[in-house]
């Protein structure tokens, strides 16, 4: 008498899909954690310079204020033309607005953080240096001396 009877399998066993939601949830959590929802809507064309080998990662994002420079996007070209413009937060700005912008950025943060504030210049690669120089002079006047030229490896 055989104790171990060969189980005859007529059908393929069904694969359990019960753990599928768990796997998907894991993926969701991964993406949720890595997601940075965009805070400002870009109104300019921004292609960052590539192949800059010495870039460093930016840490402490809450201590960074961003200045965007580039050609206005198509839908804004009727009003603002095609010359490179400056975008401060959500709106187009003028060179003379930069000092005020820095003041506001400073006011929004605790006083102890002010010396560590960095200004990140996100500039389209085809922009001419003239406008950048003007921005730099304004930043010097506003005493915001730590800057970062945004670029990619």
């Amino acid at each position: 008498m055989s104790k171990f009877k060969q189980k005859t399998q007529k059908e393929n066993p069904k694969i359990s899909t019960a753990s599928m939601p768990d796997i998907i949830f894991m993926l969701i959590f991964f993406f949720m954690v890595t997601t940075v929802l965009r805070e400002v809507e870009l109104k300019i064309k921004l292609r960052l310079p590539q192949q800059i080998s010495e870039v460093k990662k930016m840490e402490k994002k809450n201590l960074v204020s961003y200045i965007y420079v580039g050609e206005p996007k198509k839908q804004f070209q009727k009003i603002y033309g095609t010359e490179p413009r400056i975008q401060l937060n959500d709106a187009f700005g003028k060179i003379s607005d930069i000092q005020k912008f820095i003041e506001l950025e400073r006011a929004a943060r605790p006083e102890s953080d002010i010396p560590f504030l960095t200004t990140s210049l996100k500039v389209d690669k085809d922009v001419k240096m003239g406008i950048i120089t003007d921005i730099k002079q304004e930043l010097r006047k506003a005493n915001a001396l730590k800057i970062n030229y945004s670029a990619r490896k």
Binding site: I24, T35, K146, I147, Y149, S150
Partner: peptide
């Protein structure tokens, strides 16, 4: 959960901010 996953997939921008640090003269 797939629906949620797709939402986050679309909303994710993976680029880390990087750049050249410089200091301006006063």
């Amino acid at each position: 959960s797939f629906l949620l996953l797709i939402f986050f997939l679309v909303a994710t921008s993976m680029d880390i901010d990087s750049g050249l640090m410089r200091k301006l003269p006063p």
